[in-house]
Nucleic acid binder design. Structure first.
Lengths: 196, 196
DNA sequence: ACAGTTAGGAACCGATTGGTACAAATCACA
DNA sequence: TGTGATTTGTACCAATCGGTTCCTAACTGT
């Protein structure tokens, strides 16, 4: 009953995610977003409500496409020991940097940026990171070496690993030497023999 | 033989540091900087060369006023065990957040922001963080529980602690719940009993 | 074929960005 | 008391920011 949209919202949001991921929220200008999304200004404001609402959608999408898989990895499979899952996750992080991916983590970059002055973004960031934290907690519970820790210490350890994850991803984005990232991860690997 | 400057470069740089610290590099607008520094545009461009050169000076000042003291804490005194110094540092970090200081660390915020696309800033950030890393390494060498670690593992552990520091300071800036920061630090405290 | 409805895209908006130009004010020295 | 040197502050600059307006193009149901 009217002219159909020439693009798909989800595809455009996905492309917007890539732009935000590379440039950050503040660094992604509207023209850059439009180019990356392959649409014009008019279509943009028709389909979305503006830059920030789009970013909130992007955060939601990133949660589905990046956070959730990480949490899934940490939560299973049962055939893999919990601590091995954690080691695997951190090795994937340094591995991504080794392959040249220096974008870091969209949520972590947002944490260091707009979350400081925007309550909505801060809330979304906190929720995403809390999922990571729960993932670490689940993995620790499924670790032969750590499942006997008392609940309080397990929770604290999960928080620490979350902070470690954030730090690593920020360092990756800051162009830190690859060796630095890999040594940090190797130290995590070694912790497996020590922290029980 | 000419009109004297009505302000002191160092004091103005100090004030600029506070503005950058609170708003970040990109978030600190020139008017905001001028207001914070208490000078006018003309004086600014006479005394400094622009926003980015000023920021480089600010990074240098931050290195002196915040990084160096932290490294000093990690490097001594000998009366305090190395690991206790590390614990103290992390407790100071969560303690600052508890007192309402949510600015995080200027260098860490820069790592997540302009360091991604500005090589000069990335270099300065990497240098500052490497000082922290060396501080951690020194402290580990002065720790009864860790001084016997082999050099490679000690280095990796120091890198890991640096990433932990960055993560914590970013989380503090992101308005993360204080309890999260404090649990992370308590986990570091507990590591002392475990990682040897 | 036509009416109704929506998407597309360019022109435009005021506000703000970092940076420059220049005249007036203020000093030191003769 | 000039005179030369330098700072100061204002006016101004082009460029860019995110966002709005509005006309045209394109499609669907009748």
């Amino acid at each position: 009953m009217a002219r159909p949209r020439e693009f798909e919202i989800e595809v455009a949001t996905q492309k917007a995610m890539n732009v935000f991921w590379e440039y950050g929220y503040g660094g992604a200008s509207l023209p850059a977003l439009l180019t990356g999304m392959g649409i014009a200004r008019g279509s943009f404001y028709k389909a979305f409500e503006g830059k920030k609402p789009l970013f909130m959608s992007v955060l939601n999408l990133y949660d589905k496409e990046a956070i959730a898989p990480a949490v899934t990895l940490l939560s299973g499979p049962d055939s893999l020991d919990g601590w091995d899952r954690i080691k695997l996750l951190f090795n994937l992080v340094s591995g991504a940097a080794a392959k040249g991916d220096r974008r870091g983590c969209l949520v972590c970059t947002a944490a260091a940026g707009p979350a400081a002055y925007d309550a909505d973004i801060a809330r979304a960031v906190a929720q995403a990171l809390d999922k990571m934290r729960k993932g670490f907690e689940t993995a620790l519970g499924a670790s032969a070496a750590h499942s006997s820790m008392n609940e309080k210490n397990q929770r604290a350890f999960a928080d620490m690993l979350t902070a470690q994850y954030v730090g690593l991803r920020i360092l990756a984005r800051s162009q830190a030497p690859l060796a630095t990232l890999e040594r940090s991860v190797s130290a995590i690997d070694n912790l497996s023999d020590m922290v029980t």
